[in-house]
Amino acid sequence: MRELTYNEAAVEAVAEEMRRDPKIFYMSTDPIGPLLREFGAERVRATPITEAALTGMAIGAAGSGFRPIVDWRQVTFCFVAMDQIVNQAAKIHYMFGGQVSFPILYRAAVGGGGQVAAQHSQSPYSMFMNVAGLRMFLPSTPHDIKGLMKTAIRDNNPVISFESSRLMTRKGPVPDEDYTIPLGQADIKREGSDVTVVALAWLVHEALAAAEELAQEGILVEVVDPRTLVPLDAQTIRTSVQKTGRLVIADEAGPTAGFSAEIAAVVTEDGATFAQLKAPVKRVCALQVPIPYSPVLENHVFPDRQRIITGIREVLHGRRSTAAA
C-alpha cells in the first residue's frame, strides 16, 4: 500500500471532500498550498488573523447551507475564539431547538515536543470534551486521520479535528480507494492479555514500542487507541480491561480533569469492568504545567515509552497507584 504522512493524509481527505461537495470551503490565516492551487482563493481563503471571527463566521455560513472548514492551526490560537466555540458553536443547535444543522470542521494541532513553549504547545482537548455539543477526534496514524476527517466533514455538527504536532511528518499506509472511519469507534492497535494501555496520538506509538519491549519478557500488552474523544467508544475500552484486568492510560496532556480521568471513570464506574480489575488504574500523563521551552524541561514534562513501561510494571505488580506522573 502507498504511504502518506499524517499531514498529507489529512490534506487529501479535505481535498477529496471538497471535490465531492462544492458547499465545502476552507478558511485559515495561511492557506495550504495544494488546496489553494486546486480550489482557488474563493474556496480556500487566506484570512486576517482573527480566529474569533472565523470561528463564528463558520457557524453562520453552516447555518446558511455551507460546510465550512476552519483551520485554527495551533490549538492555542483558538483560545481567542472561546466564546464562539463554547457559547455559540456548541450550543446553537440545541438552544434553537434543532431548527437547522451546523456542519463545521475545526482543525487544530495539539501536543508538544517542538520546544515552542507554552503558547504553542498544549493538549487541551479535555477542556472541549467538557462542553456538550462538540464532537472531536485525535488520530494516531495517517490512515485514521484520513478516514475520520472525511467522516467529520460529512457530519452535520461542529467537529474538532485535533491533530498531533509530533505526528505530522510520520508516514503510514493509506489505501488508494475511498474509505471513511466512523466517529466513536476505538481501534485495538495491538492485542494482548496482561494489561490494557489506552493511549492517544503520539503516545499510541510510544505504547506500541513499550509493548514490543515488554513482549521480550513475555508481558502481553493490549494497546487501545480511542481515536474519537467525543463520542467515546467506552465499550471497546471496557471489554479490553475486562480481559486484561489492568489499565494504564497514556496521555500527552496533564492528568487533572483530563482525558485520562474520563477513561478511568468510564472503566471504574462500570460494575462488570470494575469487578475484573486486579490493580488500581495508572495514569501516565504530562506534568500539570504549562509547557516549558528548554528541551531539558520539556522532555521532563512529557510521558514517553519509558514512563509507560514503568506504569505497566506498576499495575502488573499490583502496587498501589501513586499520584499520576
Binding site: T76, F79, A117, A118, Q119, H120, Y293, S294, V296, L297
Partner: peptide, 21 residues
C-alpha cells in the same frame, strides 16, 4: 529557560514580554 525566543521579558526595565499569540 521556560520561555525561549518568543517569550523574553524583563519587568525590571518595563519590558512586559514578547508574546506568542
Amino acid at each position: 529557560g521556560k520561555g525561549g525566543s518568543m517569550h523574553i521579558a524583563d519587568f525590571g526595565i518595563g519590558m512586559l514580554g514578547a508574546n506568542g499569540i
